[in-house]
């Protein structure tokens, strides 16, 4: 069995202030991300997403539990040998050019000059900032700085990518390019953990998602599983009169008329079939019955408000 690229078990993190107050940032979180997987970590502000990523990078220590990257405990600097990280609101020193930035961080990752030059050329070309290679970062726009940050995270061809708001400040075309790049990296076996508030980005990019709420794992699964879980169906039928709707409601179903069709909230498939039977028993003709998928945003808001 292959070792997970990222593995977090019963992770707790409690921050203690100098006055003795405690804040629980993580409260027993379990996570596992496999090779080649695109994993989205969601949660409202203060849910513990950044703390989890910081623990994975050894920037902060877990109070309890364990975190491993490619099987190595995160306290071991070697665990970061194959990790690329793009922090939110990162500040690449403005006095460096793109070339110098990649040279310094590439060498800190153990690369030689020739490899750095080759990778820098490839990455800056892919991220469409190659014409700015010798311009100082302080002259870069936010989107360009973000692209350079991503290049710095990728310079040493990591097996694990931890990205905090990677498309922040990037234009829509750039966002799509970054999405494509991440998919390409995943196809090559890189595990990508994406931390973002842009739920549509996560929905478009990730295979699996976990939602953190108040330091606990509120939900996790594939995007398909999470957005399908609400058991809502769109029914187009005729005639649907008030007595039929009342009969549907008597079974415990939620019924809502929307633009000429009916939106049904049912317990399960049997419940749905029972409603169809009622429709037919009253001589109704069914022309469309389809599941209504919630957006990830709907799921997220429901989970956070729960």
């Amino acid at each position: 069995m292959s070792v997970p690229a990222i593995e977090v078990v019963a992770l707790h993190k409690v921050y203690r202030s100098t006055l003795g107050r405690t804040i629980t940032a993580l409260d027993g979180v379990d996570l596992s991300v496999g090779e080649g997987e695109l994993f989205g970590l969601l949660g409202p502000n203060g849910a513990g997403k950044t703390t989890a990523v910081k623990i994975l990078l050894g920037l902060t220590r877990a109070t309890e539990g364990s975190a491993r990257i490619a099987g190595l405990p995160v306290a071991n600097p070697e665990s970061r040998r194959r990790v690329g990280y793009l922090p939110e609101g990162h500040k690449i020193p403005g006095y460096l050019t793109a070339r110098q930035t990649l040279s310094i961080f590439g060498r800190m990752s153990g690369l030689d000059g020739a490899t750095i030059n080759r990778r820098a050329g490839e990455l800056l070309e892919t991220l469409r900032i190659s014409q700015w290679i010798d311009v100082r970062v302080k002259k870069f726009s936010k989107g360009m700085t973000q692209r350079l940050g991503l290049a710095a995270a990728l310079i040493h061809s990591p097996n694990v990518l931890l990205l905090d708001e990677p498309t922040d400040g990037v234009d829509p075309v750039g966002r799509r390019e970054i999405r494509d790049l991440l998919r390409e990296e995943a196809k090559n076996g890189t595990a990508v953990l994406l931390n973002s508030h842009l739920l549509s980005e996560i929905e478009l990019t990730c295979d699996r998602v976990a939602v953190l709420r108040a330091g606990k794992l509120a939900a996790h699964g594939t995007v398909e599983e999470l957005t399908r879980g609400s058991a809502k169906y769109k029914m187009v039928a005729a005639p649907v009169d008030d007595s039929l709707i009342a009969a549907f409601r008597d079974t415990g179903a939620g019924v809502e008329r929307v633009n000429g069709h009916v939106l049904l909230s049912v317990n399960d498939v049997q419940h749905l079939n029972a409603l169809v039977d009622q429709l037919r028993a009253r001589g109704g003709i069914l022309s469309e019955l389809s599941p209504v998928r919630s957006t990830l945003e709907d799921v997220f808001v429901d989970l956070v408000r729960a």
């Binding site: 920037l59 600097p77 070697e78 609101g89 500040k91 800190m108 990752s109 153990g110």
Partner: peptide, 15 residues
């Protein structure tokens, strides 16, 4: 040690 800069240094495989 500035926020946003230290992460870039400490995320490298260097003690």
């Amino acid at each position: 040690q500035e926020k946003g800069t230290i992460d870039l240094y400490l995320s490298r495989p260097v003690s």
